[in-house]
C-alpha cells in the first residue's frame, strides 16, 4: 500500500512535499470568495488550488503514484471543513493543459473515496477555451446551489 508523501508547512502561505526522486512540490490556496459575490449562497468558502514544481525534474515524477495520493490527501484535509469549495483552472500557457487535466483526473478518480464531487467546465474567454473544474464535498449543505453557480459561470452570456 503506497502512502502519501510527508506534507510540510514551510511558511504561512503554502504546503510542500518532496518525492523520492527529489522533486519538490509546493501547494497553495488562494481565497476567491470576493469574486463570487453574485452567488451569495456559495461565496463564503471558495478557494483555488495550485501545485507547482519548484525544483527537480518534473518528468521523472510523471509515473510516481504517491504524488496523486498526496494531492488527494491534501483534498481530504481541505474538505474536512464541509463548506469548503475549490474552483481551479488548468494552465494553458504551454499547450499541455489537456495532458495535465488527464493526469489530475486519473489521480482523482483513482484515489477519491467518493466524498468529493468533481464537475468539469469549459469557459470561453475571448474565443479561447479555459478548462476549469469544481471540487465540493458531497455533504455540503449548499451542494445543489454550488453546482448550479459553477455551471452558470461556464454558460455563455445570454444562456440559461
Amino acid at each position: 500500500m503506497l502512502s502519501p508523501y510527508q506534507l510540510t508547512e514551510p511558511d504561512d502561505f503554502s504546503y510542500e512535499f518532496v518525492t523520492s526522486q527529489e522533486v519538490h512540490y509546493q501547494i497553495y490556496f488562494l481565497d476567491y470568495s470576493a469574486m463570487f459575490v453574485d452567488y451569495p449562497d456559495v461565496s463564503k468558502f471558495i478557494y483555488t488550488f495550485n501545485i507547482d514544481v519548484i525544483s527537480g525534474n518534473e518528468k521523472s515524477a510523471f509515473t510516481d503514484e504517491r504524488i496523486g495520493i498526496t494531492v488527494v490527501e491534501v483534498f481530504k484535509k481541505f474538505f474536512a471543513k464541509i463548506e469548503n469549495v475549490i474552483v481551479y483552472v488548468c494552465d494553458t500557457t504551454d499547450e499541455k493543459h489537456y495532458a495535465r487535466k488527464r493526469k489530475f483526473d486519473s489521480w482523482f478518480w483513482k484515489y477519491n473515496d467518493g466524498n468529493i464531487i468533481k464537475e468539469d467546465g469549459i469557459a470561453i474567454i475571448e474565443g479561447i477555451e479555459i478548462i476549469n473544474a469544481l471540487l465540493v464535498q458531497k455533504d455540503n449543505p449548499k451542494l445543489n446551489e454550488i453546482i448550479f453557480a459553477f455551471k452558470d459561470l461556464n454558460n455563455k452570456v445570454g444562456e440559461k
Binding site: 509546493q26 497553495y28 488562494l30 476567491y32 469574486m35 463570487f36 483555488t48 495550485n50 507547482d52 519548484i54 474552483v87 481551479y88 483552472v89 494552465d91 494553458t92 500557457t93 469557459a123 470561453i124 474567454i125 475571448e126 474565443g127 479555459i130 476549469n132 452558470d152 459561470l153 461556464n154 454558460n155 455563455k156 452570456v157 445570454g158 444562456e159
Partner: peptide, 25 residues
Amino acid sequence: KTLNSKGATIFKKMLEDKDAISKHL
C-alpha cells in the same frame, strides 16, 4: 464562440494569478 462565458472575468483572473505566481516560483 465569440461570446464570453458569464464567469470569464473570474476564470481569466484565476489564470493570470496562477501564471504570475508560477513564474515567480
